[in-house]
Simulated scan of single mutants.
Amino acid sequence: MNDTRRGAVEFRNVMKRFGSFTAIPDLNLSIAPGELVTLLGPSGCGKTTTLRMLAGLESPTSGQVLIGGQDVTRLPANRRDVSMVFQSYALFPHMSVRQNVAYGLESGGLKPAEAREQAERGLDLVGLAGLGDRLPSELSGGQQQRVAVARALVLEPQVLLLDEPLSNLDARLRRRVRTEIRELQQRLGFTAVYVTHDQEEALAVSDRIVVMREGRIAQAGTPRDLYQNPASEFIADFMGEASVVDASVISVDGDSAVVRIGDLDVTLPAIGGARPGPARLAVRSNAINIRPGRGGLNGRVLTSAYLGDHIEYELDSAAGRLFAVDHENTAPLPPDTEVSLNLLPRGLALIP
């Protein structure tokens, strides 16, 4: 095998049917060695089926799956040189942490002393040195997930697969563990395929995000690309909870376009071959500045909810219904308050 291809992943015209239902119609996707790619999408979009076909837990109906340049389409899971981290951790409760990490090594024929030594190195790698004698039940949820990552990494797989790895953790712990996983991946340079339905999680950990819808790739790109340049209303709404409203492109000059929303004109990047005429505009919730009174884009408060460090609003405006998050004011404006809305260009995106 060419070492420069080690860790590369490729799906070629992959189709997957379950009976008469086609879960994946025609998937073509390449992942470079050392890249962390997240498969993102709502429930039933095909992301987990795609991961399971890569792991060897499902077989494609047609097409090819390649790892490191080798066709593994018909190889069983135990011959694919991949390791998987599950959302449930899947640790043996009666084994020590060290024994859990060493289990796969010993099952593969490594001598117990060598497996123990490699397990210790794996625990040190994920910041759990000195905890090898504990049982999984004596660790926090975040520590258990790191044990699961260590167990996968000591096998030195070409590709690490992570299936909703943080879904069992609370919000604060999720943020910390996702940072740890990303730092570990960047430090060691392994290829990783990460599945989640959480947009914030995908933005935080990924080199590239593949958004799936009904078994197809809706859009793929860097987190910044997908957030700032959505290719469709579905992507705009899914990547950051945007309100999509009618607008008009008044003029285009090079890379800039003057866009009118209600009575407000803003200058935006002219993506997707923008030209004068009717348009659709994604307005992010954090792109709206709210002030009582009239002026700018006129609106009216429909509902407000105080959530501690921010206030959420549903607004009726000259452009249509908008969802806004206000981090500046300390008290919510009551329903039916007339408001002036200013839109920040960095949170707006024309939809091709």
Rank of each mutant, 00 (worst) to 15 (best):
N2M: 12
T4C: 00
G7S: 08
A8L: 12
A8P: 00
R17M: 06
S20P: 00
F21H: 04
T22K: 01
P25T: 03
P25C: 02
L29C: 09
S30W: 01
I31T: 10
G34Y: 04
T48V: 03
L54V: 08
L54C: 05
S62K: 11
L66K: 02
G69L: 09
P76H: 04
D81T: 01
S83L: 05
V85S: 07
L91K: 03
H94C: 07
R98A: 14
V101P: 09
V101F: 11
Y103F: 15
G108I: 00
L110N: 03
E120N: 09
G122Y: 03
L125P: 07
L135D: 01
L135A: 05
S137R: 13
G142P: 13
Q145D: 07
E156V: 05
E156Q: 15
P157D: 11
R172C: 01
L173P: 11
R174Q: 05
R175W: 01
R187D: 09
L188A: 07
L188N: 06
T191S: 15
D198V: 11
E201R: 11
V205L: 12
S206N: 13
V210P: 04
V211N: 05
R213Q: 14
R216G: 03
P223C: 09
L226D: 06
Q228M: 09
F234H: 06
S248K: 13
S251R: 15
T267S: 12
A270D: 05
I271T: 13
G273D: 09
A274H: 03
G277D: 00
L281Q: 04
V283P: 05
R284W: 04
I288K: 10
I288Q: 09
I290R: 01
L297Y: 03
L297P: 02
N298K: 02
G299W: 07
A305L: 12
L307M: 14
D316M: 10
S317V: 05
A319G: 13
A324N: 08
H327E: 13
N329W: 02
L333I: 08
P334W: 03
T337F: 04
E338A: 13
S340T: 12
L343T: 02
A349S: 15
P352V: 07
